[in-house]
Design a protein around this nucleic acid. Structure first.
Lengths: 236, 236
DNA sequence: CCAAAAGTGTTTTAGGTACACCCATGA
DNA sequence: TCATGGGTGTACCTAAAACACTTTTGG
């Protein structure tokens, strides 16, 4: 029988950068680590990959166990493998990022895990190389969202165009001309206008829209160019 | 002392998808595996990550050991971790892709490793999940090259615009209008025209150009849109 | 009746695309 | 002298960006 006996085995973990939007603000979900090392420090959701699961499956399981979240947008960011990244023992970590509508899962996020939503610009500093992961995840989202409609994953079923614009403005930390934005969004033909209005932000009210799921899937890979001059904003 | 004793350790490997261009054709470098399992089958260059090195360093080392290649364009593709991907023992593999000018390193690629260049469309099928890695690497390059000038990494110091166009046509498996292509390339202001001509492909000859290294670095992150209608060609 | 957000319309401009045509030169 | 690849010039057209204006309605 053949084996790879002479090679070193290492731990493999999965860490998840979870972005959420509550209809108004872009946030990130962090947990207070419940075990050593770095107990009680803020951290990404993570865990070790088990014997019978693949990396994506491990990420799904970890998200589900710690938050009850399921069937959400989840994509591999990259693998991190610096020898010093975990002080206890060498651990390779494969980072995934997730995009969710915060309100949809509000009740499910278990308090027993000390999970907490932070504004994207007010998150505490994290253990190990997790800050780096978050930075790279932000860049990835900016890159991808400039070309693909992934940010819809963050929105509730019903949403208004000003809400959508607000989301884009937060992701890119920029002001967008609402008149051009509306036209651009409508030209994608991805949205279905509802009769109902959201009057929470203005007297006049803004129409609610829903995603046309079929068109969304069909056009997911196309280049929509939501962001004017993306070259100034993107670096990965 | 704290440890993670109860967790399973696994092997971590790095596999490299090496794309090369000889001035005429786009190729991929493969090796005939010298050990079990799957001895004598075609494979990507790979190896296990050692105790004191990070993932990028492991990729660099493996490339150097097997081919003598150094200082080349190298970027992480993604991590592959299906439990069944290696039949002997579970192994997570982090794939990297590299871009090189074949002629620059022609003599260095060691025959003792049975490395061989294959035309991109005529490569044999590979062990484990390496075919998948190659497919995803191709997609990544198409995606990235539509927006960033990475394909210059494949060219020799001196090259002609028709050569460059030929490279793009192979990467995207499409015909490009040479008149528009020339204008687009020149408008980037990335190239320095030399006085010398390459007459190997025509009587008139095509001027050689070199990359303006400074401008190349400065503009690397910008969106150059070399490919008309990239949405038809890109899927990752 | 007015403030403030929501939404429509118009103009300008850059850049992608299509296509006609000239240039250089070895055989 | 002509075939062939290399290269310039031009006209068209779409879509991005900048900007002005109207619409709605609760307080």
């Amino acid at each position: 029988m053949i084996t790879y006996t002479e090679q070193t085995r290492v731990l493999v973990a999965v860490d998840c950068i979870i972005f959420g939007f509550d209809g108004e603000q872009l946030k990130i979900l962090l947990i207070k680590r419940g075990f050593q090392p770095a107990k009680d420090q803020w951290s990404l959701m993570g865990g070790f990959v088990e014997a019978n699961e693949n990396l994506y499956g491990a990420a799904e399981r970890i998200l589900y166990q710690l938050t009850g979240l399921k069937d959400l947008y989840l994509e591999q960011l990259k693998a991190y493998g610096s020898p010093e990244r975990d002080p206890i023992e060498r651990t390779i970590s494969v980072a995934y990022f997730a995009l969710i509508d915060i309100n949809k899962y509000k009740t499910q996020i278990s308090d027993s895990y000390h999970a907490e939503w932070f504004l994207i610009n007010e998150a505490p500093s994290l253990i190990f190389d997790h800050d780096l992961m978050v930075e790279e995840a932000k860049k990835r989202i900016r890159y991808k969202a400039a070309l693909h409609p992934i940010l819809f994953e963050l929105l509730p079923k019903k949403f208004t165009i000003p809400q959508l614009q607000n989301l884009y403005e937060q992701v890119y930390n920029t002001k967008i001309d609402n008149r051009n934005f509306i036209r651009k969004v409508n030209s994608t033909d991805l949205l279905i206008k509802l009769t109902e209005k959201d009057k929470s932000n203005s007297k006049r009210g803004a129409f609610y829209y829903t995603l046309d799921k079929n068109k969304y899937k069909a056009k997911f890979q196309s280049f929509l160019n939501f962001i004017p001059n993306p070259e100034h904003l993107i670096s990965m």
